[in-house]
């Protein structure tokens, strides 16, 4: 587990500190920046939950080669796939947002209809299939593409 996972400072707190700082250096000297790659962050997440990569594969409905490559840092993740991984791992909303940031995609935004549904599902602790059911019920694109 990387050093960072041990004690994760909240983004809001750090932002307050940054805005209150006299100069960028004053903030940077004090604060720790998060330099983890997506692969590192994912490994931290599954280590914390005693999960294996195989568990992630089964829970996220993505193929194993893809998971293997993502965890090796050899592959970029699209937004939907990142959300699928977050649901598969069972992340909290905060962790999901961090995961999306590390993947280089936009975070979930409650002003977007589809995102709002996903945020709700994550907060309620839904699994991926349950989340997809909600999306389908409310007329939005599901995360796992429908056949046909």
């Amino acid at each position: 587990m990387t050093q960072q996972a041990q004690h994760e400072e909240l983004t809001e707190e750090l932002l307050q500190r940054l805005l209150a700082s006299a100069s960028p250096e004053a903030y940077l000297e004090q604060a720790t920046t998060d330099d983890r790659s997506l692969a590192d962050y994912l490994l931290d997440l599954i280590d914390a939950r005693n999960m294996t990569r195989a568990d992630v594969v089964r829970a996220s409905a993505v193929n194993s080669t893809f998971v293997y490559q993502v965890f090796n840092g050899e592959r970029h993740v699209g937004r939907d796939n990142a959300i699928k991984l977050a649901l598969g791992i069972g992340c909290t909303l905060r962790e999901t947002q961090r995961l999306l940031r590390h993947a280089g995609v936009s975070e979930l935004w409650c002003k977007n209809r589809r995102d709002a549904i996903i945020i709700f599902c994550i907060e309620q602790g839904y699994t991926l299939p349950e989340c997809d059911d909600e999306l389908y019920r409310l007329g939005e694109d599901t995360l796992v593409p429908q056949e046909g």
């Binding site: 294996t52 990569r53 195989a54 594969v57 193929n63 194993s64 998971v67």
Partner: peptide, 13 residues
């Protein structure tokens, strides 16, 4: 194939 990868990952993990 995917199944083999999954099995290998299980062993690796």
């Amino acid at each position: 194939d995917d199944g083999q990868t999954l099995r290998s990952m299980v062993r690796d993990d």
